[in-house]
Design a protein around this nucleic acid. Sequence first.
DNA 1: TCTACAACTTAGTACCACCTAC
DNA 2: GTAGGTGGTACTAAGTTGTAGA
Length: 695
Amino acid sequence: MRPVINSSDSDDEIPLAEYQNKKIAYVQGPGSGGDVPVRSDEGQPISTKDIQPSGNGGHPPPAVKDEKVVNNGVKNEDRNAAGGGGESSSDSDDDVPLSKRIADLSSTIRVKKKKKEVPTEKRKAKKPVTNRELKKPRKSTGGGNSSTAEIRWTTLEHGGVLFPPEYVPHHVKMLYDGVPVDLTPEQEEVATFFAVMKETDYMSKPIFLENFWDGFKGVLGPNHRIQCLEKCDFTPIYDWHMAERERKKNLSKEEKLRLKEEKEAKEAGYKFALIDGKKEPVGNFRVEPPGLFRGRGEHPKMGKIKKRIYPRDITINIGKGAPIPTHPFPGQDWKEIRHDNTVTWLAYWKDPISPKDFKYVMMAATSSWKSEEDLKKYEKARKLKDYIEGIRSTYTKNWTSTDRKERQMATALYFIDRLALRAGHEKEEDEAETVGCCTLKCENIECIPPCTITFDFLGKDSIRYENSVEVEPQVYENVKTFLKVDGAGRQKTGNDQLFDEMDAQDLNVRLKELMDGLSVKVFRTYNASITLDTLLSDASKEETVDGKKAEYDRANKEVAILCNHQRSVPKTHSAQMEKMEAKMAHMQKEMKDLLKDLKLSKAGKPCLNGRNVSVDIIKGRIERKRAQIVKQEITAKNKEELKTVALGTSKINYLDPRITVAWCKRNEVPIEKVFNKSLLSKFLWAMDVEPSFKF
DNA sequence: TCTACAACTTAGTACCACCTAC
DNA sequence: GTAGGTGGTACTAAGTTGTAGA
């Protein structure tokens, strides 16, 4: 657990008096390039009238070290001198005693939503009848969609879903207490789920083992010989599994081809849907096979059995009058057939691990629907460019709002904008404990004087976010305050939320007021794309296509680091680095020999290999070797630097492809150098962009 | 106004096919 | 021809968001 610094200087709540009768101070917004008038007595929420499109283009988030801030005139000492600890939610109660105001506030301050306090079961018990249960279609919602029930299709035909093959027993016996055990096919299947994970890290995780044992015990029944996991030995099944893998690997070319053709023939009927008469690719048409849940990080459900999904579990969405898809389970019906033309899913079933969630079958990333949504997403992020200056000056202004919630929202938004953090929503107890900006806990933050804040938390997918940034003095002061006490003046502990007055939803509601359709996630797209655009805006200094590609990759890497896109170090990384070092040492030796040869040649003596070689030839060899060494050095450096950075995620999700296409056109780099086949078809809509395109 | 969905996007990883160097 | 590396792809977990309905 990281220590929480509750610095004693100036970390009290800013007294109301400080906010009264202030003249307009000037604050330089982060990277805004100009002084922004700030009325320090302003406590009202940001409103749409505060923000107008600036129309002069956006800019990437300011560099960490470059921010120079003129403070807003509220000195720390002044705050301390005036006492603190309380604050008001309005400007008009300044003559009410502070203690009274605090007391009033504690009764009026909205208690932060605590979903976790209502167990899922209880919620279910009082769950109202939903649209779903009434079998009425809901309006289309979700990431970036329009807020009205938009008609997405008129006719829709598809082949449904492809089921994984039924379990075929292998009859390999696991051992219990050293003795082979007979298992039913169902028990054997579950034992095999576990056995094949023998070499994974999950095996060292107690939660995984505990959850698996719970599930396995249930499948075995109460009177089974197997009574504890410790005495189980799954090695024979694991060995069988590895042998099967090896056997499949060693199949003849012809046999592999035959199997491939068989697989393709099976899939053919599912790969495409007909949407309004147009053939479009379907994405995940396969039903997820049963197995053990592989939650990431310390997921409390890891190891639970993911049961097999049958037609009776699946709801199909298809056009009225279109042929209902068939399935290979006689005697079973689909759970339901819908004709909901306001949604884009083709089928769904309840997630067997988390029954409140659903698994959807959707169209492929290359489909027209997804392409249209992609374009909309990037256009929205481009629109933010016109508003960003106003938004930045507004949140800067609100760092000193008298309303604590406003101050928290303004501070959170600064982090979201500057550091490309995710929103962060409340999580249930049965999910991994990860956080985003709005759910940061005090223990995730450390204030280091004079103005540095360090972040250390587990974000999406339990990926660690570690960063240390120099922030505006007012942000620093705010964070120190938020770390110390909550809105009611109660001392906080490490497990308390930093932003106790607001959540992601509040912030999104506010963002909507600032720009139509704006939400937290748009900032990530905007900042990623504008960063790439800025880094690639100058004409390439490189001459070769490879050099230009490396330049692009460097820009891509900057974005990946900004978005904290990480990957685990490849298993073979250290071995590969060692090989490269050995190769480098060998090349250095060759270089040494060539230099010796050059000396000998200049002296008219035969070279080390006994032959007479001209000075020019040796010089040529030296140049080539030097180039090889430089190339090798760059490759090794890149490899090391990128060992934990995932470049693909930002390319797929955050970087407006038009920036890349335009850059390729300007610099005469074939687009295939930067986009692989699937990215090319995903971003087909971006290919006609002008070389002069600016995000 | 609050919150539980419902529907979508974003994300890392495993695996496999292909390529390249030897 | 083969081993090892690389990149593509499939998979599915884990987020975000908007809205219905209480």
